[in-house]
Design a protein around this nucleic acid. Structure first.
Lengths: 342, 342
DNA sequence: CTGTTAGCGCGTTCAT
DNA sequence: ATGAACGCGCTAACAG
């Protein structure tokens, strides 16, 4: 009785509905699809009743097979446990649903082989478009896929892939951070980033940082990567006396977590005499020390626009690839109250 | 050139491979599937080459349509931004992949109508099984679905649905918390929970708490729900003098976030003279105040077991519904160091 | 071992 | 306005 191995067979099909209503499959198909207008009221009513009575649901697999439209879009995510990815994904999913699409999410866990498998998988399910938030090794596969369907990059671009890309305006974000820190009286800024690892957004943030530090005579700046040595590096930074009040600038939420943890490790009181600003705005930022000042990304909107981009392409837009950069929003908290008296 | 509206048509099909290799579709099908052993080496080789040259990928839609097996399983999540859900989902996804299944995640945003839509959707894609982590209103739809496919509940059960259920051993978790608090010298415990809202796990935790408080003569206990009034309630709790040192026990990660935020609101120094223990172990727990003591749930394993449960059912297991309860793991941090001298 | 045939559930011509 | 027939890409039953 509970044998699900064969349960699929028992589902009510279009033919069942047709027979129940005393019409042909074609009519039922018209009722289901966009041709309902072609049906007489009498027949439409009978079909509707039959559908209700039988609890009929069209089989999307069969529809997809026939029409080549599955109403499925895929999303490739590097790390599903990264809050940024989750937030964007939530935006994508909402937009999808609003337009009758469904989202298949594949998490690669930063693993190349998994990325390859997932790409093959998504393709085999005939997804109509793909949103990519990974390093995108496997360029060949991505290229091949891009010939078959539209594709949009989120946060990080992929080498040699000429497709739409949605992300943060990184130079602007860096500028906002530096202006804020400078206004608050900080003069020596350490940028904390995850290892670049080929991630375009990280590279952009670091190079923007270096360029802008060079132009601001008031400020001194340096860069460190997260890792086992982070605590040591921070200690050194704090000990070395330089040209003024010090601040940390974390290039994303993960770096902020690492930096905060490292500061605690070395027994530093958060954030005594140390400015602290971080990209992303995670829900625990307000709780740490006197609260962490954030540059929030409009993740929901980023996700939504990514989907809309895809949709445009699906509807035939074949203009040149666009790049959409969003501005972050400054959320001031206690970690950048500044030097007393300034 | 960039018209994706018709791109699906151009994909290479099984027939293409067959013609290229000079064999029949059936042979190619055997090569793809589990009957590869039946093929002669010569033919297998030719097929393999043809597949490589053409870059053929079997169409899972068509396979699913024919065999009734889509290798898809669905997961209904109440709130995709809840770290617990994400962690479980990650476990599920990993297990899925290990067994050749793919996961379609549907986020209901705690909205009943969305739950209904998603259920219909998942069904229309012929998923083979479903993992449910929602309140499960729409009992009828769930029941109907449960006749067609196996179904496993995670964390919260659904009224009148007789299916497997994976979750935390709530009485044990509560006991661990109370024992720990008592050992550390706390005598007056306030349980902070999200509004029950029919969520079985929340109800179980609260009733276990009340029952166990009643049995422990040393301890006094009370319960508050999160919400706009939380800060006020906490203030009252702190002001009222009772039978000894006070502690907060947060019934999950969301409650912990709310409670910590509320404590800050009322200007309380974390966690001076106040014990604090929370279910779930979020990555920011170590960073707040002197660190939050946690009862970590084995989320990865919960997810994996949920999938394995499904798989067993898919393979014909029709024994009675099981309930699998996991034990939490105590992670001691600074928030329960106890009363000085104890 | 291999090819032929007949559908899976549905959309889409063609007729009528 | 409606129905009959064919095929989407693939698997399974049957021959041989």
């Amino acid at each position: 009785m509970n044998d699900f191995s064969t349960a699929q067979r028992s589902r009510v099909t279009m033919l069942d509905v047709a027979e129940r209503a005393g019409v042909s499959k074609a009519s039922v198909s018209r009722f289901i699809g966009e041709d309902r207008a072609l049906l007489s009221d009498a027949i439409a009513l009978r079909i509707e009743q039959a559908i209700d009575e039988l609890g009929y649901r069209p089989n999307q697999m069969a529809r997809g097979l026939k029409r080549g439209r599955t109403r499925l879009i895929g999303m490739l995510v590097a790390d599903i446990r990264n809050p940024y990815s989750i937030a964007v994904m939530h935006g994508v999913e909402t937009a999808c649903r609003a337009h009758g699409y469904s989202l298949v999410v594949c998490n690669t866990d930063r693993d190349d082989e998994q990325e390859r498998q997932h790409l093959a998988l998504l393709r085999s399910y005939n997804i109509e478009g793909l949103i990519v938030n990974t390093l995108g090794h496997h360029r060949d596969e991505l290229h091949e896929l891009h010939r078959e369907m539209p594709l949009v990059l989120v946060d990080r671009k992929v080498d040699g892939l000429d497709s739409d890309m949605i992300g943060l305006n990184n130079p602007q974000a860096v500028e906002m951070a530096l202006v804020h820190l400078e206004q608050r009286g900080y003069r020596d800024v350490l940028l904390v980033t995850e290892p670049y690892d080929g991630t375009s957004s990280r590279i952009e943030r670091v190079s923007s940082f270096q360029a802008q530090i060079a132009q601001r005579s008031e400020l001194a700046g340096a860069v460190v990567e997260t890792g086992v040595e982070l605590a040591t590096h921070l200690q050194t930074f704090l000990n070395t006396s330089t040209n003024g009040p010090k601040a940390l600038f974390c290039a994303n939420g993960v770096a902020a977590l690492a930096a905060t943890t490292a500061l605690r490790e070395i027994g530093f009181e958060l954030f005594k005499d140390l400015g602290f600003i971080a990209l992303d705005d995670l829900d625990w930022y307000p709780l740490v020390g006197c609260g962490i000042t954030a540059l929030a990304q409009p993740t929901q909107e980023i996700g939504a626009r990514a989907f809309e981009c895809l949709l445009k392409r699906l509807r035939g837009d074949d203009t040149a690839a666009r790049r959409l950069d969003f501005a972050p929003v400054l959320v001031e908290r206690g970690s950048t109250l500044g030097i007393r008296g300034v």
